[in-house]
């Protein structure tokens, strides 16, 4: 049997196509069908429900998801960068700190939520500590519908603690790849620490920053376990509402619509990151 080059080329890309067709195109088409069709006919009922029904918490969920993302990502990126830069230099005990920073990476989001819940709840470690130190008489309530800001704060703390590790790992790996020659050359020319950071390290770290931001933003829009454990539906988020609509209310179409909205937001943010964080210096040299 003789295969023409054209056939061979098709054969070679076929596995990738089958994979993408089965795992991406098929579920996506199903989600679109569930969202916009009812009994075979085009229908906007799910969209009307999403924005109009008193049972739907879409606007709130949208607002909270964006708020959490907008607070968590800058904080954790800045923190991860600081720690990565700090650990860039070798010193005694560096490995120990490295491990401690990475530990949360091994914990699931639900477990992280439960850990922080037991720390912050009215009979939790934090309140017991503060009471035994004599700083407060009555426990500080963090959870409950009256305390939305406190719950939001608890979510931010948990999310930063849990997911900063992944940003850190990516940035730290990126730092290891930086050419020390450039930094040394800069030192020879008398560059200050700030100049080294802004002119050399950060620009060269752009590809790593880009990967870290894309991964984290995509995950941030899917935030669910931590919020569900700490705040339930008091702080609604998009993925949580998708889960609630599907399991409690049996609104498959509405749940699929939520999934599509999360996908659309993630895709647009991914696109923006790729556009704005392109590492131009590297492209020129390659």
């Amino acid at each position: 049997m003789r295969l023409t080059p054209k056939h061979k080329a098709f054969l070679l890309i076929a596995p990738a196509f089958i994979y993408m067709g089965f795992f991406i195109a098929y579920p996506l088409s199903e989600a679109i069908y569930l969202s916009f069709f009812e009994e075979g006919a085009l229908s906007l009922a799910n969209i009307r429900y999403l924005v109009g029904s008193p049972l739907s918490k879409f606007t709130e969920a949208f607002r909270y998801t964006l708020t959490i993302t907008a607070i968590v990502i800058p904080i954790e990126t800045a923190l991860a960068l600081l720690i990565a830069l700090f650990l860039y230099n070798s010193f005694k005990g560096r490995d120990l700190i490295l491990y401690m920073v990475i530990i949360p990476l091994t914990i699931s989001d639900v477990a992280a939520g439960l850990i922080w819940y037991s720390i912050l709840t009215s009979n939790g470690f934090m309140n017991n500590l503060l009471i035994s130190l004599g700083l407060i008489d009555q426990p500080i309530q963090v959870f409950g519908s009256e305390f939305k800001v406190r719950m939001l704060l608890a979510i931010v703390v948990t999310e930063v603690w849990r997911s900063m590790a992944i940003v850190f790992v990516i940035l730290f790996a990126g730092l290891q790849l930086l050419s020390r020659d450039l930094i040394e050359a800069a030192e020879v020319f008398g560059a200050s620490w700030m100049q080294k950071l802004t002119k050399i390290i950060l620009p060269m770290l752009k590809p790593s920053l880009q990967s870290a931001l894309i991964i984290r933003t995509l995950f941030a829009f899917q935030i669910f376990g931590v919020v569900w454990i700490l705040a339930g539906r008091n702080i609604p988020v998009l993925a949580g509402e998708a889960y609630y609509e599907l399991t409690e209310l049996r609104h498959e179409g509405v749940a699929a619509l939520y999934a599509l909205i999360i996908a659309a937001i993630s895709l647009s943010f991914g696109f923006i990151y790729i556009r704005t964080l392109r590492a131009r210096h590297l492209e020129v040299t390659l």
Partner: peptide
Amino acid sequence: NRAITTTQAAVVIIIIILAIVAV
């Protein structure tokens, strides 16, 4: 083209068939 021999192509075909069966 030169790098891909007919044997390699056959291996790819087998993998695809297995994948389809699995699906």
